[in-house]
């Protein structure tokens, strides 16, 4: 009797064939029943809405009329170059968005990394200070942006502070949001203010996971604080920097909450960004049939976000 004949077959209902396990029908049914709610939910909330959004980007509709009017790729063309009504606004919003995308990640890294270093070196009160620096994140929202508006008004706290410090020439008589040349930089600063806490925490977590023997070895070799920071810590934290830059790029590209609440794109469209323009086309267009344009702009932003993610990922791979 060969060895093969002595080996018993696996149970009929659950045997492996070429790496696959076969189940009894009732088991399959139970599995399917348990998975079904998730699949149905995903079908409704995910596939359906994505499909709905994509198809809407090929139509004109104002949200009320019974039927959509199919226009093919016209919405995309109108936004990008074809329409003298929409393309110039989108171009200006794209330029503003670009400035935000450049400034916010850079400033966030420039502020949060030193802050994390400082916090990491503090022996006492570290928890308290960490909470204090995290406050902007947990309080960020409509109320905080309204508070910022009051601070930035012509008779707000910042002008008052500048006046009392003898820096009256830096005051903004129209308020920091009322002057077209200061409105966008001001919004960038507010955005950075709200994005620093999370970035700082990420850096702090990274700093606390750095092997202390590396620092000690550098110190023994005679490296000072600056040298350790520049040649040891900064390279070790590059992956975190990459994540922070990526997160802030995505937020800058698609986020518009700050802009909507504080300026609504004004004064005179000087702070309009692409995310806000998509919102305005959808909900603030005086019932014009621009929901399709809004959807098309949303998908263009999605494509831009995917491209950005791929580029950033490759850059991170090279850097590490």
């Amino acid at each position: 009797m060969s060895a093969a004949t002595t080996v018993q077959r696996p149970p009929r209902e659950r045997r492996a064939t070429r790496g696959r396990t076969r189940y009894h029908r009732s088991e399959v049914a139970w599995g399917a029943a348990f998975v079904a709610p998730a699949i149905v939910l995903f079908a409704v909330m995910g596939v359906y809405t994505i499909g709905y959004g994509v198809s809407l980007s090929f139509a004109t509709w104002n949200g009320f009329t019974p039927n959509w009017t199919w226009v093919g790729l016209h919405n995309y063309a109108d936004l990008l170059w074809a329409s003298p009504t929409y393309a110039p606004v989108v171009h200006q919003a794209a330029l503003n968005t670009l400035w935000v995308m450049i400034a916010v990640p850079i400033l966030t890294v420039l502020v949060s990394f030193p802050l994390a270093l400082l916090l990491n070196s503090v022996g006492r009160m570290r928890t308290v200070l960490r909470s204090v620096y995290f406050l902007p994140y947990v309080t960020a929202g409509i109320a905080v942006y309204f508070a910022w508006q009051y601070i930035l008004e012509p008779d707000g706290a910042i002008n008052l502070l500048l006046r009392s410090l003898g820096l009256g020439s830096l005051q903004q008589p129209q308020g920091f949001l009322g002057n077209p040349s200061t409105a966008l930089p001001t919004l960038i600063v507010v955005t950075v203010w709200s994005s620093v806490p999370v970035s700082m925490l990420l850096y702090l977590a990274g700093l606390q996971s750095v092997d202390s023997t590396l620092i000690e070895a550098a110190q023994i070799d005679g490296a000072g604080w600056w040298r350790i920071t520049r040649n040891v810590l900064w390279p070790l934290l590059k992956p975190i920097t990459g994540i922070i830059v990526l997160l802030n790029l995505r937020d800058s590209l698609q986020g518009f909450q700050t802009f909507l609440i504080m300026t609504n794109g004004g004064p005179g469209n000087h702070t309009n960004v692409l995310g806000l323009e998509a919102y305005r086309l959808a909900f603030l267009s005086q019932l014009s049939p621009t929901l399709g344009l809004s959807s098309a702009l949303g998908w263009l932003l999605f494509i831009a976000a995917v491209i950005l993610a791929v580029i950033t990922q490759r850059a991170m791979r090279r850097a590490t």
């Binding site: 029908r25 399917a32 029943a33």
Partner: peptide, 13 residues
């Protein structure tokens, strides 16, 4: 199986 699926979907609906 059909009964089970129907029950799951029914509860969702």
């Amino acid at each position: 199986m059909a009964v089970l699926l129907a029950l799951a979907l029914g509860s969702l609906v």
